[in-house]
Design a protein around this nucleic acid. Structure first.
Lengths: 216, 216
DNA sequence: AAATAAGTGGAGGAACATCCTCAACTAATC
DNA sequence: GATTAGTTGAGGATGTTCCTCCACTTATTT
């Protein structure tokens, strides 16, 4: 029942989406909507007319991005070699997050993406855990690891990205390798149990790095 | 030549230091000075009179804390077993940072501690690197690791602390173990070189997690 | 015990940051 | 050319943080 937009309005809508995508990628999801408008070469009012809340922009931009990541997890589970399946997934997911700070926000925080995006995000954790379990069954991941450990691992690497990626792009691969080697070859008994699922959620949901200044 | 403070003023000075220590530990070094005053049961004016800038509080509180950590590194270097020397140092340092968010700020960021504290901080990195080198010479740390890798490792764990420690205290031990196991037993060739010292500085200096809300 | 000097409190002004509306304007479509 | 849809961006509303200022209190000196 929604009338189609006027031609110029539709063009502007696309421009806003493109601008939002770029600004979110560079500076995270909680940039000022004014900055997105400016980056799109439009007035603030136009952005607010088309996307009354930040949430609308998030939902319009990130559902497919997250679905993509879920898809990678499923690829990994389908891979003949469990360990390669796991590492290829982690590499792809981290590379995507390295290139897009907004995606990190969406993947971890619960402050954004309350509708469809939240649903998809929820599909991620169980699949990631399955990747680990599958490796353990094949004996290529230490037995005392847990599914959630991979999530926390990703979390730590995401934090590193936050600070290091703009300065030393790609450095994350080094430390991801270190962590994965720990998962694979480590023998020192892990001294405390993994977090309960519920706590895991509470940890990730606090994800909220400081606002990055606009370049201007 | 500085006159001694009036008796009540000296007492209040101590109160402020105690309050600052506690509030910094709980919520980091960039809390509002108003909060410290309130926590000390004093007026804001009193705090500003005694410590005109946040920097003065930082310098008064953190130089011995950092010296302590430097001392631990030296203990580690003196330990008969290089690997135990390394792990004991990392454990102690991380435990201290887990208990004090202000200490994390001081140890990593360059936004605080510009005088004596900065000097001490600078003594830390070379000693940490020596701990690693010593282990490599003994063959108990992978040869392709670098001294700075331990610093980045600490950095990642510090980021984890930021989010996880209030919810799952002590969880960091699990992931520190994983990382150290990676350093020790890992065999996957590290895919990118470690950061230049100069970049290392630029990464750490950006440390600035979001402000934590006061509990009131 | 009065005089003096030192110290205190905390309301509130200044400087910002962020959000989002709205009335005057412009452009597309019929 | 009339009608309707869309755009604009200055600026009001709100919030945050810092830090000063001066009427007041308390210690110390004489």
């Amino acid at each position: 029942m929604t009338k189609p937009l006027r031609r110029d309005a539709e063009i502007n809508r696309q421009r806003i989406l493109k601008a939002a995508q770029e600004v979110f990628a560079a500076r995270g999801v909680d940039v000022m909507l004014d900055d997105i408008a400016h980056h799109a070469g439009l007035g603030v009012g136009t952005v607010y007319r088309r996307f009354p809340t930040r949430e609308d922009l998030v939902e319009a931009l990130f559902d497919t991005r997250l679905e993509e990541i879920v898809g990678w997890a499923e690829d990994g589970l389908r891979h003949a070699d469990p360990w390669t399946g796991l590492t290829e997934f982690v590499e792809r997911a981290t590379a995507a997050m390295a290139a897009d700070r907004g995606l990190r926000d969406i993947a971890f925080s619960r402050a954004y993406g309350r509708r469809r995006v939240a649903e998809i995000r929820e599909m991620l954790a169980p699949r990631v855990e399955a990747l680990v379990t599958r490796c353990q069954e094949a004996g290529v991941v230490r037995a005392d690891a847990a599914g959630v450990d991979l999530v926390l691992t990703q979390f730590m690497v995401a934090a590193l990205l936050e600070y290091a990626e703009p300065i030393a792009p790609g450095l994350w691969r080094r430390y991801l390798t270190l962590l994965l080697d720990g998962l694979r070859f480590g023998t020192t008994p892990l001294p405390v149990p993994p977090p309960e699922v519920e706590n895991m959620d509470r940890i990730a949901e606090n994800w909220r790095p400081p606002r990055r200044p606009s370049a201007d």
